[in-house]
Simulated assay, not measured.
Amino acid sequence: MPTGVHIRDARKQLFDAAERVLLREGPSALTSRAVTTEAGCAKGVLHRHFADFDGFLAEFVLDRVGLIDGQTAALREAAGTGTVAGNLTAALTALFESVAVAVVGLVGARDELRDRLREAWPAGVPVLTEAAIMIGSYLAAERELGRVAADADVDTLAAMLIGTGHLMFADRTGVPPEAEAVHKMVTAIVTGVARNPLR
């Protein structure tokens, strides 16, 4: 098997294993042994592809942040369809029901990881920052279509939606909020600027 394919597969296998451990047991359970055990491989496999465990975690976080790109494209394509609140509700629910909340907790729990991430991500918290950019981009597209007020501060609205959404979904072990609760929150934030029915 060519080396490039083998490395890519090993990385994906390890990243997927890290995600499963993180979602199931939380940031404190995420160790190199837990990851390799979950992946079903020897511990040396991780160290063959990454200088150390914090380097692995930094690349894992950036890989998971990259998954938001697909969500960003889908949300932008939704501009002009449905309702603004409905589109935002769906996007926020998909984002926060993914590994996003757990990744934020992981970044908050590990100082060395935050230091590593600053090399590639100089400002903000990965995932939350990228998510705010995604929501701001969508709101800007809706503003261009006239479905959001021309004077709406889409970056501030995006930050409010992401921050409030994160608070709603932050309890990893609790029951996630129902769609109606997320829709109510979104509606409260965008009612003043949305130019279309919210339902």
Rank of each mutant, 00 (worst) to 15 (best):
H49G: 05
M185E: 09
L145S: 06
D151L: 06
G165F: 00
E178F: 05
P197L: 03
G124P: 11
A188Y: 03
T191A: 11
T83L: 05
E97I: 04
R11M: 13
Y138H: 15
D155V: 10
V5H: 06
A51T: 14
A58E: 00
D153W: 04
T156I: 15
A42Q: 09
A18V: 01
H49A: 09
T72W: 08
L92T: 02
F96I: 07
G108A: 07
D69Q: 10
R33E: 13
V103I: 15
V186G: 08
V127G: 10
V99C: 10
A132S: 15
G165S: 05
R110L: 03
L57F: 00
T81F: 08
P197Y: 03
E130W: 07
L67Q: 08
G105Y: 01
P122V: 13
G146T: 08
W121S: 12
R199K: 05
A149V: 01
A51D: 13
A58T: 03
K12F: 08
E144T: 12
L62I: 06
D171S: 11
G108F: 03
A18Q: 00
R20F: 09
P176F: 02
V5P: 06
L57W: 02
F60Y: 15
I162S: 04
V186Y: 05
Q13A: 10
M160R: 14
M1Y: 05
G136A: 06
Q71L: 15
A85N: 10
G44T: 15
G165V: 00
L62M: 09
F96D: 05
L145K: 08
R147T: 14
